[in-house]
Design a protein around this nucleic acid. Sequence first.
DNA 1: CCTGGCACTCCATGGTCACGAGTGCCAGAT
DNA 2: ATCTGGCACTCGTGACCATGGAGTGCCAGG
Lengths: 338, 338
Amino acid sequence: MLSERRLEVLRAIVQDYVGTEEPVGSKALTERHRLGVSPATVRNDMAALEDEGFIAQPHTSAGRIPTDKGYRLFVDKLAGVKPLSTPERRAIHNFLDGAVDLDDVVGRTVRLLAQLTRQVAVVQYPSLTRSTVRHVELLSLAPARVMLVLITDTGRVEQRMVDCPAPIGETSLADLRARLNSRVVGRRFADVPQLVQDLTESFEQEDRGTVSTVLATLLETLVEETEERLMIGGTANLTRFGHDFPLTIRPVLEALEEQVVLLKLLGEAKDSGMTVRIGHENAHEGLNSTSVVAVGYGSGDEAVAKLGVVGPTRMDYPGTMGAVRAVARYVGQILAES
Amino acid sequence: MLSERRLEVLRAIVQDYVGTEEPVGSKALTERHRLGVSPATVRNDMAALEDEGFIAQPHTSAGRIPTDKGYRLFVDKLAGVKPLSTPERRAIHNFLDGAVDLDDVVGRTVRLLAQLTRQVAVVQYPSLTRSTVRHVELLSLAPARVMLVLITDTGRVEQRMVDCPAPIGETSLADLRARLNSRVVGRRFADVPQLVQDLTESFEQEDRGTVSTVLATLLETLVEETEERLMIGGTANLTRFGHDFPLTIRPVLEALEEQVVLLKLLGEAKDSGMTVRIGHENAHEGLNSTSVVAVGYGSGDEAVAKLGVVGPTRMDYPGTMGAVRAVARYVGQILAES
DNA sequence: CCTGGCACTCCATGGTCACGAGTGCCAGAT
DNA sequence: ATCTGGCACTCGTGACCATGGAGTGCCAGG
């Protein structure tokens, strides 16, 4: 096992490297941190840390930089979550309080998180399957054309046009609307399929075609929109990665454009608590030199979606984790209120 | 005025530079283009073009590159709009035909355009003010809580929660819904304010507070959402800008993150026909080394929104313009059908 | 008005060299 | 057993310089 001081050396290396972006040597370390030992001793410790794979040197005779494994140890054992400062906390409140609808909440959250962490922010829209139904509305727009509107408890609204096989009267439509709502309101979207499966049969023969078409569209919407939507922002922060990174930024931007990749990324995060994935721990190749800090958020106890940031492995983990957690909590509150 | 051949030389310079990204010299020009004259002659022409400000040399004794003014002349006089190839055309249809709702249409359009032009694509959502009202729906979610849903002829849906000062009965709500719809359906959103202004008075005293709150929210929504939404994609293509551009890419990414900037950018484009803004013609500083190709699209004759691409001034103008125009036309068709 | 030739400019490339930061190791001190 | 100071060594960085080649402007002649 590593001695106390060696851990301290690792912590110092991570902190310095995160600050300076340059490999850190033994002498510089002893100067900036009160380790109480000489550079030579630190060198021995560094050699040990390197043997264990926590740090590496880019070239012989250069300083050391932390490896993914080193960051992992740092995050797990050495670093706490830095609480936000009061001004930052206030900024979150001010910024999020003005939101008018769900799109706006998500949009503001993304910008806020990007600004706070100075990294790329990713926010997932509240999932349909984990939300509950607040209301289902059916609007007759034309004789044989119905618009289906789904409203969730998190404020999300989905709508879909339905072309009916036959015209349907206002009365029947109102009937369908009422029955549908009485069955599903307050229930989770995931349960809707079972709840409506035998609904068609209770209608007159002439309306059954239309009813079943509407229901089919409803179920289809549930499936399609399970493939979640998300919003990203702060990509300009990628340019801070370092002056040498035109090559590194490319695959990251590409990965960020693929919603599928991002959704998988967030999906891999634990439902509760914070998840940090460092460098090669990310399955996607383009993100091998980035870390992802993600956390679930929700209007109640349960997470309805996730949000997080993507940044260089060399990031300020305590600060980033603090910001992500604080934002997630407050967004949860906002959703609960609306 | 410039002689015919000098224009030809300019065209050749633009084409070569767009292809190679390197300053083009007189010798290379005569080799790649059948100009029928010697390098020396071309040099004279180039000197003339430089005097007029159409081309410039990065350093003495290097080849020439077109200036913004040069590109302008090229676009206005020398270049046509390159029609798309049949496979490209088919790709557009295949890609856009599967869209299920407006979000999906816009999302697909952005990706398509980015892929086709290999540049950054920007697509504005159909504007509320220029669309017409298809339906206004009021849903009573709780005794004193109403959800307002606006549906446009372009498939756009906006919803907003309204907290009412007093509970309102289903009958009154149905009444309001009916009167509201009879006044505004088929009308342009821009005209809605006048159309509803005296509506409150026709209600019973007890409901007036609620009615006027609902109407106020409706008008507020119109105002807020006039500030249009848009979607961008293909930012990864920015990395193709050239290997030296980590400095140039930064302000562009920043500009792209500011919706306001982009909206202004698209707003400056003409309503009909294609608009090309080259380099410094763009007001925003971060976009001084980019060109914007934008065009309006709509479900009918009239543009309801705009879309375009942002790329380096050194772009393939004919091809880009062709792609932008083709995509805009087809999106218009899709919207008209839905 | 075009062309070939010529002298000139200047960027890009690549090699050499000195510098300095950093290392590993060892012998001696604690 | 552990820390420390010293020392030789490695290598990347930046400065400096020479070379080559692409491109230019200009001029005299067709």
